[in-house]
Every structure is written in C-alpha cells, then in structure tokens.
Design a binder for these strands. Structure first.
Length: 573
RNA sequence: CGGGGCGUAGCUCAGAUGGUUUAGAGCGCAUGCCUUGGGAGCAUGAGGUCCCCGGUUCAAGUCCGGGCGCCCCGACCA
C-alpha cells in the first residue's frame, strides 16, 4: 500500500476526550474516529487490524470445527419474549418499531437468534453436535460507554453457540472452544487467562472469562500465586478464618451505643474484633425487602446473593425501608425480633458466640447474642465476597487481587434456551430431546484495544506482527533522489510479489514525519533506504519493538526481510 | 441516575474584572521556494452560526437563566 494513496490521519497531540492509552493511541494513529459517545468507526488503517484479528478468530473457529453463519442482526421481539429476556435485558437492548408498529430488537447477543436458526433446520441427533458462529455487530445501549472501543454501544463480536445431545457432549464442545480461545489470544499476542466467572443473566452452570491483566480492566480478579486459581471477584471463593473460640453462652444484654453504628466505631466502642459482629443489611430484591446477615468484617457479594435469590433487580434498601423493616434508624438493625421478612444468613455467622448486633432501637446494640437461642436462621447461604488476603480454597495460599480486561467469555448454558424456545431433536429411540447449549464470545474491538493497552511505548503502538496493519514499511529518506526512490520501489514491489503485507511511505514528507508516523502506527519493521548506506550497496531494517537495526546488502534484502518477518510470526504460533 | 470537569478554526489551546469594530496562537491544510537519517525553514493564503435557545446591556465568546453534547469517578453491566 502506498501511503500517498492511503488514508493516513495521524495526530501529534492526544485527543482531549480520551483518557486510556489504547483510546488515545487508536485516535492518534488514525485507526478509529468517534461518531458519538460509544460509537466509533474504523478508518482504513484500523480496518486492516480489525480484519487481521477477525481472520485469526475465524481460522481458529474453523479449525475447532465451528461453522460460520449469519443470522439477522435486527431480530423480532417475539424470540426474546419466548426466552423471557425481553424484560430481563431491560434498557440495554435497543428496540425499534417498524412501520407496522412491530417491535424489533437490535441484537445485543444472539442466543435466541441461533437457537431459532437451529430450531428451523435441525431435527435429528445425527446432526449434532454442532457449533455455529458469526462475526458480526452487536448493539447495547450501555449506561456509560467508556475507554473508546473498550465499552461501546455498537461493537463487533464473534459469538459461537454449541448444541449437543447431552452434558458429556457439551463438556467436549466447551473444551474445544476453550482451546480455540487460548489459540486465538496467543496468536494475537495477548496473555489472556481463563478466569472463573459468574454466569449472569445468560444462565448456565459454568463460565470462564478470558482476562488480560491490566489496570484499565473493569473486572476485579482474585488469584492464587501458588496454584494459579483465578476467579472474578463476583464468583471467587475463598477460605476465611472461622470463629473458633469456645465460650460459655452469656445472657443477652442491651447496651447504650449513642451515635455508634459503623462496624469500625463499634469495634472501638466494644474493644473487640469485627468478627464478633453480626451485620444486618436490608436489600430490595425485585422490590421485596429481605434481610441479610453477615459477619462484621465481611462484605456481601451481591452477585452471589442475586444468584441465590434468583431475582432480577437487587439493591440496598433506602433508609425509609430499613426503618420500616427494623423499626430503627440505619445502623441499629439486628436479627432479633424481626418478623414478616425473609432472612438469609451468610455461613460466616454460624460460629459466632456471644455476638454483637443492633437492637432495632435507636442508639442500642445487643451483646451476648447467640444463634439458635436468641433467634433462628432458616436459610444459610454462601453470599460473602472473597477478598485479597483470604486463603485459597484449593491450596490455602493467601489470595491476591488484580484487574482484568474481559476479552472473551465462555459459558455452559444448559437447557435455558432450548427449553424456553422449545427446540427438540429426535434421539436414537425416536424420542424428543432438548439439545444442551454452550455459548462463546470474543469482543473483537476490545481485543484490539487490549493489545494496544499492553503493547505500546512513548512513541506509539507496538503491534504484534500478526495483527499489525502492515508487516513492514519501506521508507525512502529522500523524496527527490531518483536512485533512492527506484531502489525503494524495487524493494516494495518485490515484497508485494512475495505476498508480504508491505507499505511504502511515498508521501512528500520529511523523514522525521515518516519515522514518527511509522512508530505511532506501530509497524513492526521499517525498511530504511538512505543515501550513505546505499552508496555502500546496503539498506537498513529497524525493529519497532526494541529499536534494533540490521544492515543488509541489497542483493540479499528481499530474502532477509522475508526471513525476519517469518521469524517474527513464530513467536505467536 | 448521583458527583466532578469541559464545550472558541480540522487538532491542541489562549482570549482577567463585558468595550481596538477585522476573534487569536501553535500544529494541520493549500500554493511557491528551499530541504530530507527522527514531527525542518521562509513567504503567501483558505478556514469560525465562539455548542444551542432566551435574557440583561448602548455593547456579550465574556454576565444571568434554561437546554444539549463530550470526558472522568461512582451506581449499573454476557
């Protein structure tokens, strides 16, 4: 590609409305432009990267035996009604009325669409297992789009859906996809770790997110440095120190605690450990108040609680509702004497002896509280957040935390969609069975942003060669010297013939501009044709990643450049 | 939806207490000359509904009211 004929739009300064490194660099290098908040278009240069990522994903999907299809992006509301997600997905889903007042949905994800495709075309167990996929646009009206292409309202996703006749089949399909994902991320130069994740509104039994560790990540991850347990905080489990003290049960007693109600203040006031407290929280689960009990030093994991309750909306109750439920202002709630409300206790309070809790009266707490004797808990559940410093549930090592960018997500979905949408095939015995599903997504745009986020320096992007917009660029030092131009053109043309993805910067610009643009854009190799070296019959190749330079005699140039490029590819295979 | 910041040329920004009538700079863009080993130099030129609407005033980019948009933090989110 000739730069003089291409669309190169580079900026010297950071755009003012970009904060993250990848966002700034994508704009500055002229990969994308912003149409509106959360809506980005790809410029020709960015599209080259995009297409390379897409190709790699497609190759690995095909290699894993998945079959590409293309359902409609505009989907009828009816299929969402069938699955029950028309309401669950809420405002995130972009809805459109057509001229006949029919409701259509711009697909935010495609479980329903693919399930419908399979329902229309697959009737026999002999056609299973099958994994279908597409690489297409998704639409989500995000509350807050951010970091450029990282979280936006229109984006490209590769989404795949597996259909199997039984769970064993699903396990195999899942593992195949999992391996394909590992391959994809390796090839695009990302170190993406599979991390145990919550299944969220997708439903299902097992799920893993592929996370690129980065401070920009929106997900908090707990991990064990010893046994490599990685889990999203929403899902992570851990071992905490239990209350083991053997104590005689003391009598229940009310204590004045004027204006003391945070756990921190209470700990000081009573001069004891936060582990002695039974924290009482009031939540609204789909608008019904519930009470949650948890040990004073721990936090409720709202994802776990939501999953346990099976509710759609969960939020902390307002002060008015707390007062209504507990008859006491915020900070003095306790389990004793509560009636007409569902109480769920985290397992952490089981062994608290002579605990302390609110008295459901202003400025009063109760001490000597004992479960069973003073109040009864009917529901115990594991709804506590694991946190850094807890012990690993597998090996006992201390857990640490880090942040990650979610670039892929794989789920064992189960029967949620095939049952709700009534998909059946006949099995060997002529009996109708529901296939079992898995689903698997890779965010293409987010993958690109993540690659930049971890591969950049003060001069710009440093692409892995597998996804770079060009593998190499020829830069003639002068735009006037006919000899330099001729040699540059010759090298350029000869490499095109060898199917190298090469560019030539034939713009009327100073070399400084060309070097800086090539660096900003992140092209792995610069082939520099300069006067002095050319007089000795040599050219120069400079690496983008570490700046190393090799000089090559002209007759060997083509062969040597191809070698360098092929060698580079090996790092990502 | 709460908190904070911002909105002037394609980009990044300057324009105090309203007042040189033609609103500026750097970069970019166009033309010419000159130059080419890390964002060169000189000259000339094009380019603006100062986010929008309303108000105050003899006079508003500047003050007041309302709205819209963008970014960040939080809440939220396959």
């Amino acid at each position: 590609m000739r730069f003089s004929k291409f669309l190169i739009y580079t900026l010297r300064e950071d755009p003012k409305d970009a904060e993250s490194i990848s966002h700034k660099l994508m704009i500055r290098a002229g990969l994308i432009y912003k149409e509106e908040s959360g809506l980005y278009g790809y410029l020709p240069l960015g599209l080259r990267v995009y297409n390379k990522v897409v190709s790699i994903v497609r190759e690995e999907m095909n290699k894993a035996g998945a079959i590409e299809a293309l359902p409609t992006i505009l989907t009828p509301a009816s299929i969402w009604k069938e699955s029950g997600r028309l309401d669950v997905m809420g405002k995130e889903m972009i809805r459109i009325k057509d001229r006949r007042d029919g409701l259509l949905v711009l697909g935010p994800t495609h479980e329903e669409a693919f399930t419908d495709m399979v329902r229309r075309t697959i009737n026999s167990y002999k056609q299973l297992p099958i994994t279908l996929y597409q690489i297409a646009k998704k639409f989500r009206d995000e509350i807050r789009p951010r970091f450029g292409v990282m979280r936006c309202r229109e984006f490209t996703m590769k989404d795949a859906y597996s259909f199997d006749i039984d769970e064993k089949g699903l396990d195999e399909s899942y593992l195949k996809m999992r391996q394909a994902y590992i391959n994809v991320f390796k090839r695009v130069g990302l170190n993406a770790l599979p991390v145990e994740a919550d299944v969220g509104s997708m439903g299902g039994t097992r799920s893993e997110e592929f996370m690129v560790l980065s401070s920009l990540g929106e997900a908090l991850i707990l991990y064990c440095p010893k046994c490599n347990y990685y889990a999203n905080i929403e899902r992570a489990e851990s071992i905490i120190q239990e209350n083991t003290e053997e104590e005689e049960e003391k009598p229940l007693q009310e204590v004045d605690t004027p204006n003391v109600y945070t756990i921190e203040d209470l700990t000081k006031f009573f001069n004891t450990s936060p582990k002695k407290f039974i924290k009482t929280l009031v939540y609204l689960a789909d608008n019904t108040p519930i009470v949650v009990l948890i040990r004073g030093d721990l936090d409720v994991n709202e994802t776990k609680l939501k999953n346990y309750l099976g509710c759609i909306e969960l939020e902390l109750a307002s002060n008015e509702i707390i007062e209504k439920v507990t008859n006491a202002p915020l900070g003095f709630a306790g389990p004793i004497g509560l009636s007409n409300v569902r109480i769920i206790a985290d397992n952490s309070i089981k062994n608290i002896k002579n605990g302390i809790t609110g008295a459901n009266k202003k400025d009063k707490h109760l001490v000597g509280v004992n479960i069973g004797r003073d109040f009864v808990v009917e529901e115990f559940a594991e709804i506590r957040s694991a946190k850094a410093g807890d012990k690993c549930k597998i090996c006992g090592e201390t857990l640490k935390e880090t942040k990650g960018i979610e670039v892929g997500h794989i789920f064992k979905l189960g029967y949620k969609y095939t049952k709700s949408m009534n998909v059946t095939v006949l099995d060997k015995d002529g009996k109708r069975i529901h296939p079992i599903m898995g689903c698997y997504g890779i965010g293409i745009d987010r993958t690109i942003a993540a690659i930049i986020e971890v591969n950049n320096d003060e001069n710009g992007i440093v692409w892995p060669i597998t996804v770079a917009p060009f593998e190499a660029i020829v830069i003639p030092i002068s735009t006037k010297d006919p000899k330099l131009i001729d040699i540059s053109e010759e090298i350029y043309n000869s490499l095109i013939k060898e199917r190298i993805d090469i560019a030539i910067d034939d713009r009327e610009e100073s070399v400084g501009v060309k070097f800086n643009d090539a660096d900003l854009i992140g092209i792995p190799f610069k082939i520099i044709v300069g006067k002095k070296l050319l007089d000795e019959g040599k050219i120069e190749v400079k690496r983008r990643d570490n700046g190393e330079t090799v000089t090559i005699p002209l007759p060997e140039a083509k062969k040597k450049i191809i070698e360098l490029i092929l060698e580079e590819y090996k790092k990502y295979s």
